[in-house]
Structures are given as structure tokens and as C-alpha cells.
Simulated scan of single mutants.
Amino acid sequence: MSIETIAGAAHARTARLGVREIVRRLNAALGATLVAALAGSKDRKTSYKWAQQNGPTPNAAAVKRLQFAYTQWIVVSEAEGEHVARMWFIGANPWLGHDSPVDAVREDRFREVAAAAAAMVDDGFIG
């Protein structure tokens, strides 16, 4: 299966979820502190609040980052496993100038992060 097909399927799965469910899943996978950081929040506990049914709603920029991050989580974790995916999100990444994907998502470098995820999954592919 091509990386484009994998990424497209991951995006479709993400699009079917509400932001609260995306936050819950990312919190479980990456931890609330990393989720808040990649969304651009300085309050490390805010992602717990976003996950609550009656909690505050993240702003539009944070929602976009959360949706994108979850799509990349699906791509990497299903190909490499959850432990590797978590390490991929927090580690220095050569395709991102040695920044972490968490930092790059927070900086809205979506195209670069998607290429880095593709490279991880496709053993060096850079789109």
C-alpha cells in the first residue's frame, strides 16, 4: 500500500472523530503534556480539560494541530507500533532539521511533518 493511501485512510479516520475524542486518544498515546505542547498551549493540563464532555473547546488553530497530529499518530503507530510512534513524536528528527515532530506541529510545519512520517513508514521516502 502506498504512503498516500495510508495517509488518506488515516485522515479519513481522523475526520470522523470529534475533537474531544481526538484529544482523549492523543492524551492516552502521548500524554497530556505533549498534547498541550503540540497544540500550542502553555497550560500542560489544558488537554485534560479539552477531553471532558463539557470542557472548553480548543481554538481553531489548536484543533487543526490536534487533528493533524492524530492523523500522523495513526500513520506511524500502525506501521511501527505505539512505542516507536511515541518516540518518533518526541525525538529529534533529521527530516525536521533535528526538531521533534511535537515542536514542528506546534509551529504549523504540517507538510514537513507529513514527509517525516512518510519517511519513517516508507524507509526513507520524502515526498
Rank of each mutant, 00 (worst) to 15 (best):
R24F: 00
R24H: 02
R25E: 10
R25M: 05
N27I: 09
A29S: 15
L30A: 04
A32K: 05
A32T: 14
T33D: 10
L34N: 11
L38N: 04
A39C: 14
A39V: 11
A39R: 04
A39K: 03
G40E: 12
G40V: 06
S41D: 13
S41W: 11
K45E: 14
T46N: 05
T46H: 07
Y48K: 13
Y48Q: 14
K49R: 15
K49I: 13
K49C: 01
K49L: 14
W50C: 11
W50A: 04
W50K: 07
A51D: 07
A51P: 01
A51W: 01
Q52F: 08
N54W: 12
G55W: 05
P56D: 11
N59M: 09
N59Y: 11
N59W: 10
A61F: 09
A61E: 12
A61I: 08
A62C: 06
A62P: 02
A62K: 01
K64T: 14
R65A: 08
R65F: 06
R65P: 03
L66Q: 04
Q67V: 06
Q67F: 04
F68I: 09
A69C: 09
A69W: 02
Q72P: 03
W73K: 04
W73F: 08
I74T: 02
V75G: 01
V75P: 03
V75F: 06
E78C: 05
E78R: 10
E78M: 03
A79R: 09
E80F: 05
E80M: 13
G81R: 11
G81D: 09
E82V: 01
E82I: 00
E82P: 02
